[in-house]
Design a protein around this nucleic acid. Structure first.
Lengths: 169, 169
DNA sequence: GTGCTTGCAAACCCTTTGCACAGCC
DNA sequence: GGCTGTGCAAAGGGTTTGCAAGCAC
C-alpha cells in the first residue's frame, strides 16, 4: 500500500484526479438533473430536497421513510422527519418517484376463497377482484432468480375504474 | 300483500316455514363449519368469534377492521375493537383468511426506473426486485371486466427467499 | 418582497398491549 | 379448575398538520 504512495506518484495522481473529476461530473449531472426536474414540476430547489433526492436515488431496495431520514440526517443534521415525509409525498405526486403499493394503509383481508387478483383504481383506490382466467396473465414459473421459491403470484392491475373514467372525461 | 296473508294461508305457511327451515340449516351449517375450523386450529368457540367470522364471510370486497367492527357491533354491541383486531390476526395466522398485501405497513417508494415487479418473502418480508423478462410474464390485456382501463400491472411473487429456505430446512 | 419550505411540536389514526374479569373446555 | 378469550384503557408506531421563522425566486 505504502509502496504505491512512494513508488508511483504519477499513477496515484492520475487515479486521484480522475476519481475526483468523475465525482465532480456526477455531482454536477445529478444537480442539473434535479434542477430540471424541479423546474418541470414547479418545485423550489432547496438543499434539503436535493440531498433527499440524491440519497433516495442511491439507496437499494425499498427503504422506509425512517431509513431515508437517518441517511439524510448524516448530510443535513438539522433536517426534520416531517420534511422528509412532505418531500417524499411531493416527489410521488410529481411522478418523480412511484409509490410501491396502491393499497390502503390499514389491514385488509381476503374472504374470497377462489384464485383471484385485484384491479386497483389509481384515482379512487377502489379494489375489485378479478378471477385468474379473466386476467389472462399467468406467470407460472417455479424457479426465479436468487433461488426464490414461489408460493403464489399476486397481481395488482393498476388503472382507472369505469366511474373514474367517466369523471375524467 | 294482505291478500296473501288472508287468501293463501297454506302457501304462506309453506314459504314461511321453508324460509325458516333453510335459514336454520344455513346457520347450523355455518356454525358447525366454524366449530370444525376452530377445532382444527385449537381455537375456543366464542360467540364473538363466531359472529365475527360470519360477518366477515358475508361482506363484499376488502373491508377495513373498523368497517368489520361496525357491522359486528350491531349483533354484539359490547364487543371491543381490540377483540376484532385480535381475532382477525388469529384467523389470518390460522390460515382461515389471508392478508391481502404482504407489504410493510409504512410508505415505500420505487427508485428503480426500469419495468419490474417484486419477490416478497412470506417469512422475513424481504422485498427484492425482479425484471419483467425474468418473471416470464404473458401478454397483457388492455380491456378487463367492468370497463376497467389498465395502466400497468404490478406483480408480487410470494414465496421464500434463499435464506429463509435454509433456515426452514 | 412574496410565496413556498423548513423545523418543531402537537395531533392524528390505526394498531397493539397489559390487565382484571368472564367464559370455554 | 385451568387456561383462553374478552373488554377497557393506555401506550405505541407511523404519519400528518399548524405555525412561526427562513429561504428561493
Amino acid at each position: 500500500m505504502r509502496a504505491a504512495f512512494c513508488g508511483q506518484p504519477n499513477l496515484l495522481d492520475n487515479n486521484f484526479y480522475r476519481s475526483l473529476w468523475s465525482r465532480l461530473i456526477f455531482v454536477q449531472q445529478t444537480s442539473s438533473n434535479f434542477r430540471k426536474l424541479c423546474a418541470e414540476h414547479g418545485l423550489a430547489v432547496t438543499h434539503q430536497r436535493q440531498v433527499l433526492y440524491e440519497v433516495m436515488q442511491g439507496m437499494e431496495g425499498h427503504p422506509s421513510p425512517e431509513e431515508v431520514f437517518a441517511r439524510v440526517k448524516k448530510k443535513v443534521p438539522a433536517i426534520s422527519l416531517a420534511t422528509v415525509y412532505k418531500n417524499i409525498h411531493l416527489f410521488v405526486e410529481s411522478g418523480i418517484f412511484r409509490k410501491m403499493s396502491m393499497h390502503h394503509g390499514s389491514v385488509r383481508v381476503e374472504m374470497n376463497d377462489e384464485e383471484h387478483h385485484h384491479m386497483v383504481c389509481s384515482r379512487c383506490k377502489a379494489i375489485a377482484d378479478i378471477g385468474e382466467k379473466e386476467l389472462g396473465l399467468a406467470p407460472r414459473r417455479r424457479k426465479l432468480p436468487d433461488g426464490f421459491l414461489v408460493e403464489r403470484y399476486a397481481v395488482d392491475v393498476i388503472g382507472l375504474c369505469a366511474k373514474c373514467q367517466q369523471q375524467a372525461s
